Structure formats: structure tokens, C-alpha cells
Amino acid sequence: MNYFKLFNLPEIFDINIEQLNKNFYRLQKKFHPDVYIKDDILIKNQKKKKIFIINEGYRNLKNPLHRINHIFILNKLNYKDKKKYPLDISSLEQQFKLNSELEHLKSKKYFQNEIIFFIKKNKNKIQNLFKKIAFNILKKNWRLSIGLYQELRFFIKLVNQAEEIKKNKDIKNLF
């Protein structure tokens, strides 16, 4: 199912979210099961299936990571194929360095400013990666888009781990 076509949107990363919302509510209104309450069970089931697809499509296009993945699927690309799309050595070295830096921060007793800086720096990296991916998807540069997407997933996981460490340290400092 092409969710971009379902919502009458171009197959690009930088979609108009306001238009997505508007088209979502229009489709909800048209296919919601309550509208067909007096219809027979077959029509009701068809509308339920349609509403399920509409909701799934909306969730996928609303979430930037899922949207990228959907674009890859539409173009028959599998970012998980490590043989076809291996991580380059510099990306692996960068990931190792950042994981080591996070482990170092985790072991420190007082680190509030450092962890906040670490999170902010890597959130900026995430925003830059989204921009690069959007540009490369537009240019249909799939190999680079997939490499950037793999990198993006790493940075999101890294920031989530850092935020969890910060939260746990904050709780310990309360006692």
C-alpha cells in the first residue's frame, strides 16, 4: 500500500504535515464505520479494513523514521541488508567513539552539564541527518540515503540511552 497516494501526497520525505492531517480527517469522515452503521456486515467489514489502512498510513507518514522506511519499501530497498548496504569504517569508528564517550559519562558522579551537552550535540546531528536524508531521497540517491538512515537510527538510540542515563542520575541525586 502506498500511503503517499492514499493521502494524495508526493512521495518525498518533506511532506506537508498540515495537508496530511487534513487528508486524514477527510478520509476518516468518509470511511469511519459509524457512517455505515445501517449497512450489512460485509460493507461494515470493508470499511473497517479501510479505516485500519488509513490509520496505519497516517501513523507511518506522521513519524519521520517510519516515513523514510516507507519510501525505502516503495522503492524495494532493504536498509537492513548489510551485504548490499554495509556501514563504512568511519561510521563504525564514530559509533564506537560515541558509545565510549557515553559509557564514560555514565560512570561519572557529577556530570549534568556534560550529559546535557552530549544530548544536545547529538540531537543536532539527528536534525542534520534528517535534512541530508530528505535531500538524498529527493535525488533518489538510495545508497547514501540508506547509509544516512542507518546512522540516524544509531544516533536516535544513542540519544535515548543518554536521556535514560540522565534521568536515572537525576533520580539518584534526589536521595
Rank of each mutant, 00 (worst) to 15 (best):
M1V: 09
Y3V: 02
F4M: 00
K5L: 08
K5Y: 04
F7I: 06
N8E: 11
N8Y: 04
L9V: 00
L9Y: 00
P10D: 04
F13W: 04
N16I: 01
Q19C: 07
L20W: 00
N23G: 00
F24M: 09
F24A: 01
F24L: 01
F24P: 06
R26S: 14
R26C: 13
R26I: 14
R26D: 11
Q28K: 15
K29N: 13
K29V: 08
P33F: 04
V35P: 06
I37L: 13
I41A: 14
K44R: 08
K44I: 05
N45W: 09
N45D: 12
Q46T: 10
K48G: 06
K48W: 07
K48V: 09
I54C: 01
I54E: 06
N55Q: 12
N55D: 08
E56L: 14
G57Q: 02
G57W: 03
G57A: 05
Y58I: 04
Y58M: 02
Y58C: 03
R59W: 10
N60Q: 14
N60I: 14
L61Q: 00
N63I: 06
H66F: 15
I68Q: 02
I68D: 01
H70R: 07
H70W: 08
L74M: 07
N75P: 03
L77W: 10
N78K: 06
N78T: 07
Y79N: 05
Y79M: 00
K84M: 08
K84L: 15
L87G: 03
L87D: 13
I89E: 14
L92Y: 04
E93N: 12
Q94I: 13
L98T: 08
N99E: 09
S100W: 12
E101D: 14
E103C: 08
L105T: 07
L105Q: 01
K106P: 08
S107Y: 14
S107W: 12
Y110E: 14
F111T: 15
F111M: 14
F111K: 12
N113M: 12
E114Q: 13
F117C: 12
F118R: 02
I119H: 01
K120L: 10
K120Y: 11
K120S: 13
K121T: 13
N122A: 00
K123E: 14
N124L: 12
N124M: 10
K125N: 07
Q127K: 15
K131I: 10
K131V: 08
I133A: 01
I133K: 02
I133N: 03
A134I: 07
N136Y: 09
I137A: 01
L138P: 05
L138F: 14
L138E: 15
K139L: 13
N141F: 04
W142D: 01
W142G: 03
W142I: 01
R143L: 12
R143M: 11
G147M: 10
L148M: 09
Y149P: 06
L152D: 00
R153F: 05
F154H: 05
F154N: 02
I156K: 09
I156A: 05
L158Y: 02
V159A: 06
V159Y: 05
N160P: 05
Q161T: 12
A162C: 07
E163M: 11
E164C: 02
K166T: 07
K166G: 08
K169M: 07
D170W: 09
D170N: 15
I171Y: 13
K172L: 14
K172P: 04
K172Q: 15
